[in-house]
Design a protein around this nucleic acid. Structure first.
Length: 800
DNA sequence: CCAGGAATTGTTTTT
DNA sequence: CAATTCCTGG
């Protein structure tokens, strides 16, 4: 299995047991090296499969890793510690829930649940949600947790931050009360558990002889500490990553972990994988040239033995619609030449861009599949059904309670709920427990609801998982509700799909693809098993022996025995329902399950990481969109955008298109943009312009548009959305837009160079409004992008 | 209490 | 433009 590797790959795979960093460029065989190393460690008897801990970032790569491993070796991959940070932490927390200070039935909040919980908290505590926007609060809390900080440890001096910390404290108390755990909490709890509990920590430190990490550049501060804690017993960390593909800094990923790891652990044991097996020369060199504009790289240059291939095609169109149309026409001819649809990908920076492209593909009757967006377990009907299911296990989960207490409507209004939540707060109890205390008609409706939950929970004891879901969907009234709703057919279908998914899930015995280990305390006499965690045990474990009897241990068994703890296979300890709910939270699932169909692939650049296609279209290669304007505030933001473009380019095997539009609909208004600076960072020799390259970007093509009259018409007939006029003065600035406006004596147009006394020189990116109300978004050379009112700001027109 | 329309607002990426 | 919140009449 090692013979087929190149020398660097081989060196990485067969590295002695020591900390090591593998700098793996795009398409250099990263996953292959990782899985082959695992197989090699097992085959050469350096480690049993269960002594490996392999951590990935996504569920998809965890699955891929397991699939490849079982292709290399005839082992049963069930029970292996291969999974995402969140999945593995969940597994440990389920096993040690008591030591972690959690309820056995703790539920996991996804991002949306968390946001809802925060909104509810702000309302209940009477905190101004304008000043403390729920989203900001959420970011603050998650940011703190990802730094490993509890409220007491967060530094705060100004009043605003102090209040945020207070909210964080309230939030935490609320989660405790409701037995719910957010994503960041899974990691932090697990970290604290290992840190504080010596026997458990030592158990895992002994158990894991090798730790392997994929996409190391995406780890955050807490994940890094979690890894080094687990490695504290001497297990080497084999970290694979690519600093040039770090695209998640915005949510706490710290590329610096790579350099830190090299300095503190790997001590120069760095292997570079620079041979690319994916792309042709022009494509690869474009990527190399682009990424060379970034500073502070660990350094790496990809090369290929494949030829130059075709140049990168660049196309500029007047509008997003025409851009989409052009792409679809090109896709048609690619298919005509024999390309497979699934080997063609259309990538975009933001999800909002997908609609136009979808529309064009749909009109041309080309099958396509959109990734991302709303995923299965995030759909409202599914979330409703899951909320009922969660209440079966944990009626004190107020988030779920509130979600469905009046859905379908059962006469419980805002007024009643306010009373209820006041009462619950007074008594420091859950909504469920406080329900009987509310009087009046609302109160009796609440009681009926509470009784229904309890009776369904009772039924849950005797029903299988799929039966239970059917039962709940029926008796909650969800079924009836969606039967009468006009758009309900799809939702009913999804609910049926949920039942099917549960049936598959329960049948697979393999609850989240990552069977969890569980530890229980056993009387000393029961601590027998020598190595029940050998591959075979997974199979015997299926046959539903009661929890606890199936003693299991590993090389660390002695230590665990001393601590009075033994690991057992998890499923027996975790009810199928609990396992299914975990699965639903941690793996939101694909959004469209039309598997197997040969379809053009649509996704964001982020979602494309790790994938590859014969032909790739990167769309919207425009200033303000890619790089995105929100990222331009600081240098690091721009560099992350550049890495994102690097990732996008390196997805292509044979053919790459970069497309852009001069104008595009955004938030219901047309915006104009210049071509992306990234295009100018790729040497001309690799590019082939299929549309005339505009010398001065976005020129006078837009001159002559009568802005003033548009604005006037807009006010007379309604606003720019086509809504009827309200008869009042529009509260918003007129939405009309064009490439040129006149303010006083000055004329401004897109692409125009301007000088501001304070901000210096810049270029106009977009214009909105007209006359004295006109505003311009200006990209300044030194201070980033700003939006200025042209009637107020003193601007001097200079050469572009 | 509730449904439905009007008004407002938020929009990058997401395990 | 779409999603959410606000508001009003029944």
């Amino acid at each position: 299995m090692i013979e087929k590797l190149n020398p660097e790959q081989q060196a990485a795979v067969t590295l002695p047991a020591q900390h090591a960093l593998v700098l793996a460029g795009a398409g250099s065989g990263k996953t292959r090296v990782l899985t082959t190393r695992m197989a090699w460690l097992i085959q050469t008897s350096q480690a049993s499969p269960h002594a490996l801990l392999a951590v990935t970032f996504t569920n998809k790569s965890a699955r891929e890793m397991l699939a490849r491993l079982s292709a290399l070796l005839p082992i049963n991959t069930r029970g292996l510690w291969v999974g995402t940070f969140h999945g593995l932490c969940n597994r440990m927390l389920r096993a040690h829930y008591r030591d972690a200070g959690l309820a056995q039935t703790f539920q996991i909040l996804d991002s949306a649940d968390q946001l809802a919980a925060i909104k509810r908290l702000l309302k209940a505590t009477g905190i101004d949600d304008e000043k403390y926007a729920p989203r900001d609060v959420q970011r603050f809390i998650n940011g703190a947790k990802e730094e490993g900080l509890r409220p007491d440890a967060v530094e705060a001096h100004d009043p605003y931050r102090l209040r945020l910390v207070e909210i964080y404290r309230f939030y935490q108390a609320q989660c405790e009360r409701e037995s719910v755990v957010d994503f960041a909490e899974l990691l932090l709890r697990c970290y604290e558990l290992l840190q504080r509990n010596g026997p458990i920590r030592e158990h895992y430190q002994r158990r894991f002889r090798h730790i392997l990490v994929d996409e190391f550049q995406d780890t955050n501060a807490l994940q890094y500490r979690w890894l080094t804690l687990l490695a504290g017993g001497g297990a080497p960390i084999f970290a694979v990553g690519d600093d040039d593909q770090s695209i998640y800094a915005f949510r706490g990923a710290n590329v610096g972990n790579m350099a830190d790891f090299e300095r503190d652990y790997a001590h120069g044991t760095v292997i570079r994988l620079e041979q690319n097996y994916r792309s042709y020369g022009h494509i690869l060199d474009s990527a190399n040239a682009l990424i060379a504009h970034n500073t502070a790289r660990l350094g790496k240059n990809l090369w290929t033995e494949q030829g130059e291939g075709e140049p990168v095609r660049v196309v500029e169109q007047p509008s997003d619609l025409l851009e989409a149309q052009w792409i679809v026409d090109e896709i048609k001819s690619l298919i005509g030449e024999g390309s497979l649809r699934r080997e063609i990908a259309v990538l975009y920076r933001s999800n909002a861009q997908s609609r136009v492209i979808e529309h064009a593909l749909f009109s041309a009757a080309i099958p396509y599949k959109v990734y991302g967006g709303l995923r299965f377990f995030e759909r409202q009907e599914i979330k409703h059904a899951l909320a009922y299911l969660r209440l079966m296990d944990n009626p004190d989960d107020d988030t779920s309670w509130l979600r469905v207490v009046n859905f379908p409507t059962r006469g419980i209004g805002a007024r009643t709920l306010e009373q209820l939540s006041d009462l619950a707060r007074e008594r420091g109890t859950s909504l469920h427990k406080a329900a009987p205390l509310v009087g009046g008609k609302g109160g009796s409706n609440l009681l009926k609801f509470a009784a229904m939950i309890e009776s369904m929970a009772h039924e849950a004891q005797v029903l299988t998982l799929p039966e239970l879901i059917e039962h709940v969907v029926h008796h909650s009234g969800l079924l009836a509700h969606y039967q009468t709703e006009r758009e309900g057919a799809d939702r009913l279908e999804n609910l049926q799909e949920l039942v099917n998914a549960a049936a598959v899930f329960a049948g697979e015995e393999n609850f989240d693809g990552l069977p969890a280990g569980r530890m229980v305390e056993l009387p000393a006499a029961a601590q027998a098993g020598p190595d029940a965690f050998a591959p075979a045990s997974a199979d015997t474990a299926v046959s539903a022996t009661p929890a606890g009897n199936q003693a299991a241990s590993d090389t660390a068994g002695a230590g665990m025995a001393a601590a009075g703890l033994i690991e057992i296979d998890a499923q027996h300890g975790m009810s199928p329902l609990a396992a299914f709910l975990s699965h639903a939270s941690l793996e939101a699932g694909d959004n469209q399950a039309q598997a197997g169909q040969d379809a053009v692939q649509l996704m964001t650049v982020h979602a494309a990481k790790g994938l590859e296609f014969d032909a790739v279209f990167i769309t919207g290669v425009e200033e303000g969109l890619f790089p995105h304007e929100n990222s331009l505030m600081e240098q690091s933001g721009l560099e992350e955008e550049r890495r994102l473009m690097y990732v996008a380019i390196t997805r292509a095997r044979q053919r790459l298109y970069l497309t852009l539009a001069q104008s595009r609909m955004l938030h219901g208004q047309t915006r104009y943009a210049l071509r992306s600076r990234f295009l100018d960072e790729i040497p001309e020799e690799h590019l082939k312009w299929l549309s005339p390259k505009v010398r001065v970007p976005v020129s006078s093509a837009w001159e002559g548009t009568d802005v003033a009259s548009r604005g006037w018409n807009a006010q007379r007939r309604g606003d720019a959305y086509g809504r009827p006029a309200t008869g009042q003065i529009a509260p918003r600035a007129p939405r009309s837009l064009a490439s040129g406006v006149t303010v006083g004596q000055q004329q401004f147009r897109i692409g125009q160079g301007v000088r501001h006394a304070k901000f210096g020189d810049g270029t106009i990116l977009s214009l909105s409004g007209s006359g004295q109300d006109a505003q311009a978004q200006i990209q300044f050379r030194d201070v980033g992008t700003k939006t200025l009112a042209l009637g107020v700001a003193k601007l001097e027109v200079i050469a572009a």
